[in-house]
Write a protein that binds this DNA or RNA. Sequence first.
DNA 1: GTCAAGAATCTTGTATGCAAGATATATATT
DNA 2: AATATATATCTTGCATACAAGATTCTTGAC
Lengths: 224, 224
Amino acid sequence: MRGEQTPRLREALEDDIVSGRLRPGQKLDEVGLAERFGVSRTPIREALIQLSASGLIEIRPRRGAFVALLGPRELLESFELMAELEAACARLAAQRMGAADRATLAGALAACGAAVASGDSCAYYSANAAFHAAIYAATGNRVIHGEALRLQRALQPYRRLQLHVPRRMETSLAEHEAIMAALSAGDGMEAAERMRAHVLVQGERFMALLAALQAEAEALAAPG
Amino acid sequence: MRGEQTPRLREALEDDIVSGRLRPGQKLDEVGLAERFGVSRTPIREALIQLSASGLIEIRPRRGAFVALLGPRELLESFELMAELEAACARLAAQRMGAADRATLAGALAACGAAVASGDSCAYYSANAAFHAAIYAATGNRVIHGEALRLQRALQPYRRLQLHVPRRMETSLAEHEAIMAALSAGDGMEAAERMRAHVLVQGERFMALLAALQAEAEALAAPG
DNA sequence: GTCAAGAATCTTGTATGCAAGATATATATT
DNA sequence: AATATATATCTTGCATACAAGATTCTTGAC
């Protein structure tokens, strides 16, 4: 038996959550997970604690672990934090971006364009994440890069719900292109401002979607 | 035996680290900690995992847990993140601050002034933390507030080393007053810009101090 | 038939035991 | 004497065991 199960378990669970296989609010049973992964509860618990620290799950004492289910307020606040953090990344990237960063960024933007052209919202989903991640990396600041990635992952399950909002991809792509232009021009302020708006509007659009879904759910629940 | 040891242990260890009783780089022995707190290794391990997630300690697989010891690069990068995050807080606080927030902030600023007047750098240390925390709170965004506090704590052990830099308190207080003025005027851009500079300069001053200390240590080590 | 109280069951939190990797020590070799 | 190697010891990572709080089911009263 070789050591270090916990990282593997953490990654597997993280993947399940980010990819949507585990839904927000769902309970994570320690014994069940232990059996599924063929380990004891100990490394499972350690992985769960790590995930709770990164915001993907919530542990309620004596009640168990649940895939994080952000309420409307917390969700809006998280998107606001993301917007501020990404705006900072854009500003720093505009100042420091090197040739390699520029190439990576251009590639990610091209992938976004291709996804829009083919109408593949799933491809856009990951190309979008790569575009944003390329900006984090272009700050040259690994601490900021890591924090931004962590937050991006924590919000991923919610972004997923947005995939099919009409014309979302097109407007998002246009915003990406404007951000790219500001970055290429070295205009940090402009890039930051556009990035902030880009992320904030996602949060607001998402809030509207959430409200609609909740109204729908209540309408279904009440008469039944 | 009542449940829930882990939170207590986490807080106690966090306090030991933030207060400086445990030095950066120091090893944390699981058995030793377990004996000291009168518990088994299990809750100790869980507390250590949580602390590693918040950045206060570092766990190296099969090697053990150590109080986080940031290298120069990571430290500068962390201060840069802090500067961006606090700048965002200042901007949001300028827009949203209510009467209660304003009063808390004024109180914290007064405490900073009193500490400078009496030359009590230890009192300034905590009044300074309270001033910054009041700004996080004034954003009205609990997620941002929590992240800012977490990062503040993670950097606290390093700020502590800076306590006795000559005239540090006076310049810091002057910067606080300028930030307060911008906040009161509702000038978010100005407040953000001043806050960013305030935090960045701390990071740079700290780097200089660290370099001096390292040079001193090497000078002592080489000839002996 | 609904609701409340109590018992049975389940799940979590902590303790303990054991195996494997890491560190320290002793020995041998050059 | 210094270095490399083998061995002993220590520490971590994981499995298992058990106790206490949470949940569910049953039973009784209204």
